[in-house]
Amino acid sequence: MIKPDLLKCFIAAADTGSFSAAGRLLGKHLATVSGNVARLEDELGVQLFNREGKYPQLTEAGLNLYDGAKVVVDSVERFTRNAVHLSEGVPARFTFAVHEDIDFQVFAPLVKQAQQRWPHMRIQISQQSASAIFNAVREHEVDLAFTPSLEGNSQFYEFQAIGHCDVHVVCGKQHPLARKQSVSNDDLMSHTQVLSADMNQQDALYKSSVMSPSLCCVNGHTNLVQLVKAGVGWAMVSSVNQEVDSNLKILSPDFVQTSLTVQYDLIWQKNQPLNEVQQFFQSNIKRLINN
């Protein structure tokens, strides 16, 4: 079986154009690089470089085998790196849940960074209602979740208060409320309110949020925003980074005397210390929320 070190010397010599430059690149002596390339040629039974000139030139066989050598070396390095991560406690799979009323788009860059950092790890993302998230964490089906704070349930999970997300009252730009200079409580009551279907009618948050007798309930942030943009009604939407869809009009109704916010937590399994991946998401989400 051909050793990856021999292939690395071959690739470095081809990339740099000389055995001495390849040695400097790899931190090896010229004789070692030259010897490894010669040994590789013996094992393959083909000549990889023409050595007649001042600098070695790839032969046709060398050109033909170059791409395959890179694939083998990259695969071995990736395999070794993945094995090291697993031995250090990085999980083979990571499941991250986000409350369905939050626009997941703001978390997408974190997922990309995690995938690049731990390419072996299978990342699973879900958006669920608060009750579904709590149950999934309790059943060890979710490794980390971002969800509104819910008092009285912490005996089932570990948690960290992350911060407040802004809540905006919005409507579509073609909605009648968008043309008003000021919006009264009576104005809101006279139009349909689009509401998250996740809200429990017995919760204080539900009772304080519902203002209109005409309601349209829907699951998920994306669906709620689509209905508002279509002119179905107005809504209260949560925003992690204070940005709101450009097709929505932010209203300042009479009842809003101060900024509306919702407290969010990160939660995970009870009595489980955070691993490296969970810590990565924890620190970055906290920074994202508090910027």
Rank of each mutant, 00 (worst) to 15 (best):
Met1Arg: 15
Met1Lys: 13
Ile2Tyr: 00
Pro4Arg: 15
Leu7Gly: 01
Phe10Asn: 00
Ala13Ile: 06
Phe19Tyr: 09
Lys28Glu: 03
Ala31Pro: 09
Gly35Leu: 11
Asn36Thr: 09
Asn36Arg: 12
Val37Tyr: 03
Ala38His: 06
Val46Pro: 04
Val46Gln: 01
Gln47Ile: 02
Leu48Asn: 07
Leu48Pro: 07
Glu52Thr: 09
Glu52Ala: 12
Gly53Arg: 12
Tyr55Gln: 06
Pro56Tyr: 01
Ala61Val: 02
Gly62Ala: 06
Asn64Gln: 02
Leu65Gly: 05
Val73Asn: 11
Glu77His: 06
Arg78Gly: 03
Phe79Cys: 04
Thr80Val: 13
Thr80Tyr: 11
Ala83Cys: 11
Ser87Arg: 02
Gly89Val: 15
Pro91Cys: 01
Ala92Asp: 09
Arg93Tyr: 04
Ala97Met: 04
Val98Asp: 02
His99Gln: 05
His99Glu: 07
Glu100Pro: 06
Ile102Asn: 04
Gln105Arg: 14
Val106Ala: 06
Pro109Ser: 03
Lys112Thr: 07
Gln113Cys: 14
Trp118Ile: 11
Arg122Ala: 10
Ile123Thr: 13
Gln124Arg: 10
Ile125Cys: 10
Gln128Tyr: 02
Gln128His: 07
Ala132Cys: 12
Phe134Cys: 09
Asn135Gly: 08
Val137Gly: 07
Glu139Arg: 14
Glu139Gln: 12
Glu141Thr: 13
Glu141Val: 10
Ala145Tyr: 12
Gly152Gln: 07
Asn153Trp: 04
Ser154Lys: 13
Phe156Gln: 04
Phe156Ile: 13
Glu158Phe: 13
Phe159Leu: 07
Gly163Ala: 09
Asp166Tyr: 09
Val170Ser: 00
Cys171Tyr: 00
Cys171Gln: 07
Lys173Gly: 02
Gln174Arg: 13
His175Phe: 05
Leu177Met: 08
Ala178Gln: 12
Asn185Gly: 03
Leu188Arg: 12
Met189Lys: 11
Met189Val: 09
Thr192Ser: 05
Val194Phe: 02
Ala197Met: 03
Gln202Glu: 01
Ala204Gln: 09
Tyr206Pro: 05
Lys207Glu: 14
Met211Gln: 14
Leu215Thr: 05
Cys216Val: 14
His221Cys: 08
Asn223Met: 01
Leu224Ser: 04
Val228Pro: 08
Val232Phe: 03
Gly233Ile: 09
Trp234Leu: 06
Trp234Tyr: 03
Met236Asp: 06
Ser238Ala: 08
Ser239Phe: 01
Asn241Cys: 10
Val244Cys: 06
Ser246Gly: 04
Asn247Gln: 15
Ser252Tyr: 12
Ser252Thr: 14
Ser252Asn: 01
Ser252His: 13
Ser252Cys: 06
Ile267Lys: 15
Trp268Ile: 08
Pro273Arg: 05
Leu274Ala: 03
Asn284Met: 01
Ile285Val: 00
Lys286Ile: 11
Lys286Glu: 10
Leu288Ala: 08
